[in-house]
Amino acid sequence: MLELRLVQGSLLKKVLESVKDLVNDANFDCSATGFSLQAMDSSHVALVALLLRSEGFEHYRCDRNLSMGMNLNNMAKMLKCAGNDDIVTIKADDGGDTVTFMFESPTQDKIADFEMKLMDIDSEHLGIPEAEFQAIVRMPSAEFARICKDLSSIGDTVVISVTKEGVKFSTRGDIGTANIVCRQNTTVDKPEDATVIEMQEPVSLTFALRYMNSFTKATPLSNQVTISLSSELPVVVEYKVAEMGYIRFYLAPKLEE
């Protein structure tokens, strides 16, 4: 038996909106630790890892580890029917083939339940090694989204370079080139407006903008995004999910032959 009650139901709506275009089907894993998901996009270039820790739920009952295969587009369709202020409860029986999403309005005057069919999904959990990053950039998520959107109107790939000058996002296309440099800026009124660059060594990597743009659909989840880079390794683009967890997008770089 599984019963997870999330008072801030809008978080789950935002999570689904941020992954539904990247991943078609995925297994949600439920354990004592929390509600999690690891899945790759269909071309195996990007991977998404979500964790919503059990402590973040108002009520968290998971009698035994459960893996529930869901079509993320269908799950997003159902969660779209929840109001932004609604409390969302996820319910499933052990061995059952459906999951129920219950939506309660804050005043308890409207209660809805949506039952969705589960699916069998063959998926392998990949081991993600702990990495020491050469550079970690923390910046306003809206700024990062704007940069990815702007650059994708010029080119298909972005070169992200971190030096002691700052972080540079560059692209090149048929019509010309573009470079956007963001410098460290910690003298801001609000901490969410800060740009913080921790650099051990300069690093420069090339990525497909199509995926970066897809990751920025998580922007409504968090005011800040963290971009972690190491030479010849996947970039990690992380958005915190309130106080309860994170959504991390891993993107394989483009490398010289």
């Binding site: 790759m40 195996h44 270039v45 990007a46 991977l47 392998e124 959990h125 990949l126 081991g127 993600i128 090694p129 790939t157 090339t206 497909a208 390794l233 996947p234 891993y250 993107l251 394989a252 770089p253 483009k254 490398l255 010289e256 032959e257």
Partner: peptide, 14 residues
Amino acid sequence: MQRQKSILSFFQKP
């Protein structure tokens, strides 16, 4: 010439 790597070449299968 740059080539798109697969994420599977970085992370281990169980």
